[in-house]
């Protein structure tokens, strides 16, 4: 389905091996950093992975990847199974549209875009916990904002590095 015209851009498919490697790396880093870093400096690697995979694929595949990685995050961090699955399904579904809509050169604004969506991801998770009248991890709003910014920063660095090695720079330079 193409809701908006492609505007002459070609989609690149993320290779399966690369996706699996990315997923394993992100899971490992996220588990390890959860043990050593304070919540304010927590980088949501699995969120970055979902964002990255969704950026290069279709909404349906993005939602599926988001759902799977979200469930893995729920399992790794002891959330209710499906909580991050739900938030990342939505993120994975809408990010491909975002990749089509944004055609201007954003430069460092990409950092803010990732940070903003990371914040939205946390908002969905905590909103769901509030709706279900359940207590979530005790994290201050400042820590959540800080973590979203750090995630945006890490995502930007990750995108630049990965673009350099795996994809033609033009794929992301369009931002």
């Amino acid at each position: 389905m193409r809701v908006f015209p492609e505007q002459g851009k070609e989609k690149k498919q993320v290779p399966l091996g690369g996706a699996v490697a990315l997923f394993l790396l992100c899971s490992l880093v996220e588990v390890l950093e959860g043990k050593v870093l304070p919540p304010a400096l927590h980088v949501h690697c699995l969120f970055i992975a979902v964002f990255y995979l969704a950026w290069y694929t279709t909404p349906l595949k993005g939602a599926l990847a988001g759902s799977l990685l979200g469930l893995v995050e729920d399992y790794l961090f002891g959330f209710y199974l499906g909580l991050n699955g739900l938030s990342k399904t939505l993120i994975g579904f809408f990010v491909p549209y975002l990749s089509r809509w944004t055609s201007a050169e954003l430069g460092s604004l990409r950092l803010l875009l990732i940070a903003g969506i990371a914040l939205l991801d946390r908002g969905i998770v905590y909103g769901m916990l509030y709706l279900l009248t359940q207590r979530g991890p005790e994290t201050s709003i400042l820590a959540i904002l800080s973590s979203a910014f750090v995630t945006g920063l890490a995502g930007e660095v990750f995108f630049r590095l990965y673009d350099e090695f795996r994809f033609p720079p033009s794929n992301f330079r369009r931002l």
């Binding site: 389905m1 349906l60 599926l64 759902s67 209710y80 199974l81 499906g82 699955g85 739900l86 399904t89």
Partner: peptide
């Protein structure tokens, strides 16, 4: 409608998962 249907199914799946635990 395929992506929307897929999204609906995935959301429903996740909501069901949550609802059997909470």
């Amino acid at each position: 409608n395929k992506p929307l249907l897929g999204l609906s199914l995935l959301i429903l799946f996740n909501l069901l998962l949550i609802s059997v635990q909470v």
